[in-house]
Design a binder for these strands. Structure first.
Lengths: 116, 116
DNA sequence: GACATATTTCAAGTTTTGTTGAACTATCCG
DNA sequence: CGGATAGTTCAACAAAACTTGAAATATGTC
């Protein structure tokens, strides 16, 4: 991943509307939700939601497919993990002892955290 | 963490300049770097760098302290881990089997990833 | 104190983003 | 076909962000 690609992904998460939408889709992974459900659950006007969903899809963080007359949106968990990897890579220049200390105090859901 | 706070943190990472700066500071954790070093290493004009460093500090992702006539900037690893936790929380509504599959294929630096 | 170095603040202009309502497109159902 | 439902696109405006050079502030050195 290069810097411009990564920053465009963070840009997609930089609006509270889009962040709420994305987290809702993460919560509803892997099935996703159709636009109307998102609109109702988060109380966002359809027009505005469509604007933000488009931005999320363009970033790659969200995928979309037609389902009859509905549009189903899903979070891309692999890309989410990729930007986490990008952000944390080479932390402390790879000194594991340093990172381990921080990590022990973190609240990252262990569900995401491979063994080491 | 609430949504507006979290999105303002992602907003801080939404510029490629700031993302490069932050990653450089993560790499140089826990000691950090002074502004001039960052400017030289990333080839960013002092004025512009100052603008972006201010944004990073305001987000909380970076801290700063005076050191003689230098200003030393450091990445806040705990806050970085907090937003990762926020982003990934309740993934798949807490269904561990679902997440484990994604995580096995991820490239997240194991340095950050607690055992489970 | 005078001067050099490190960094920030300010002002100005350009560009980008967010929001809204109205109009448009696509699909389903009778 | 015609109407209803689901979503998107468009136009317009308001608000915010990025970049730059010039000026200002703070600290160290002679």
């Amino acid at each position: 991943m290069e810097s411009k690609k990564a920053s465009s992904i963070f840009e997609a998460l930089s609006s509270d509307v889009r962040l709420d939408v994305f987290r809702l889709l993460v919560k509803n992974a892997p099935d996703g939700l159709v636009a109307g459900d998102i609109s109702r659950l988060l109380d966002i006007p359809a027009t505005n939601l469509s604007f933000h969903l488009k931005a999320l899809v363009q970033s790659g963080l969200v995928t979309v497919e037609r389902e009859g007359r509905y549009m189903r949106y899903k979070a891309s968990i692999p890309l989410m993990l990729d930007i986490i990897a990008y952000l944390t890579s080479e932390c402390c220049s790879g000194n594991p002892g340093c990172c381990r200390k921080f990590r022990r105090e973190s609240h990252v859901d262990p569900c995401f955290l491979p063994e080491r």
